[in-house]
Simulated assay, not measured.
Amino acid sequence: MGYELRLLCSEESKNDWLSVYQPDNESQRPFETDDEIGSALYYASFIGLEAVANRLLTAGADVNEQGGVYGNALQAASVRGHEKVVQILVDARADVNAQGGDYGNALRAASSRGHEKVVQMLMDAGADVNALGGFNGNALQAASQGGYKKVVQMFMDAGADANAQGGYFGNALQAASVEGHEKVVQMLLDAGADVNAQGGDYSNALQAASHGGYKKVVQMFMDAAADVNAQGGFYGNALQAASAEGHEKVVQMLIDAEADVNTQGGFNGNPLQAASARGQEKVVQMLIDAEADVNAQGGFNGNPLQAASARGQEKVAASVRGHEKVVQMLVDAGADVNAQGGDCGNVLQAASSRGHEKVVQTDAL
């Protein structure tokens, strides 16, 4: 303990150490402000140095001092699951509901990593299970995204709001759906989570599950009366999300559930354009068979034919070939090769601007 204590208790030694290695900063980028530098107690807590934390507190260290990537010592110890350090800080009257840092508060930090014992310790000390803030919005959303069933149940038992809004994924159900955590999804539905709640990056839970291709979760939402045509989010709707990623079985499930194959919205404008832009041949055929409008206008690329002509064969931007087969499929289905619109103006210009020679040379064009 002597070396660690000398290192952390000397401001000069601590700063020299941090200039070489920042234990809480994965990017290891230089500090831009003093707020990014934590106290000696903060770093002792993050590393899990119980004896050093005790000595610092005895010497008068402020248990609630702000600073560091995780905001304060308690959040730093919680995110790493250092149970004994957490107890030391709680006994020293650390504010369990203090806001700040990457996770917003200590409970969300512990929840995001599934540290059950730390979660219980914080709740026993009065942590608010419904406090909002941080990337995950609240502790329940953080645990749901990670698929930590026991932690989710702990929050349910403590009266967590299954429909609380906030954070990147909008609510706990969407967060669980993004990673396909079936059991957590069921727990949340059983607790009254609204399957059609709007918000977050994917707008709703069905779109999140569809984007990931999680068939069982999609079916669970269907059984719970999810609106298959709900609008919103980057992909506009669930069918467009599934189509863009080529999840054929989910696409069929949504079509069977009467998802509108011609609904407009989202970056790609409609499901057929989304599938065409990614070269998802089987999905393109499924949508055509379901009477998708091959000449529908909208989205970044203007129409499906232009999307197929402009985009690369793979999802990576460095690809140099157009989706020749998809182009032919759309033309065979009656796509207008002279249609105007989109970022490139028309299909020939789209193919030419990307250097897709085979598309340009296609007989239909």
Rank of each mutant, 00 (worst) to 15 (best):
K216C: 02
A335P: 00
D201Y: 14
Q231S: 09
A160S: 14
Y103Q: 08
V331A: 15
G68E: 01
G192I: 04
M187S: 04
S309K: 03
V178E: 09
N303E: 12
G212Y: 02
G322R: 11
G71N: 12
I255L: 15
G60R: 00
K14P: 01
K84Q: 14
A244E: 14
G114R: 11
D34V: 06
G213H: 05
T33P: 01
Q273M: 08
N270V: 04
D95F: 06
S276D: 08
A238T: 02
V184P: 02
A143H: 13
N237T: 04
P23M: 01
E357N: 11
L206A: 03
I88C: 00
D190F: 07
A225Q: 10
A164E: 12
G322K: 12
G114C: 11
P271F: 07
V331W: 13
S319Q: 11
G81L: 06
A335V: 00
S78K: 07
D227R: 03
A242Q: 06
Y235V: 00
F31N: 02
L305N: 12
N64K: 05
K14R: 15
D91Q: 15
V327H: 13
V347L: 08
L122C: 08
N64P: 04
A94S: 14
R55C: 00
R93L: 04
A364F: 06
V326H: 11
D62Q: 05
Q313Y: 11
A310F: 15
G134A: 07
A317D: 14
L89M: 08
V85Y: 01
Q361P: 11
Q99G: 04
D336R: 14
A53R: 00
Q219T: 01
S319A: 15
G133M: 10
K282L: 04
D95S: 10
R93W: 09
E83H: 04
N338T: 15
V178M: 05
A225V: 01
N303V: 10
A364K: 08
H211I: 00
A364G: 07
F300G: 04
G147M: 13
G2P: 00
D293F: 05
A277Q: 13
A317K: 15
V327T: 13
V129M: 13
E314P: 00
L140N: 11
D332V: 08
G48A: 06
S45Q: 02
R80H: 01
M123P: 07
K325Y: 14
I255T: 11
T33S: 11
G48Q: 08
D260C: 10
A53L: 00
Q285I: 03
D194C: 04
N301Y: 15
F169E: 02
G236E: 03
G299E: 11
G212E: 06
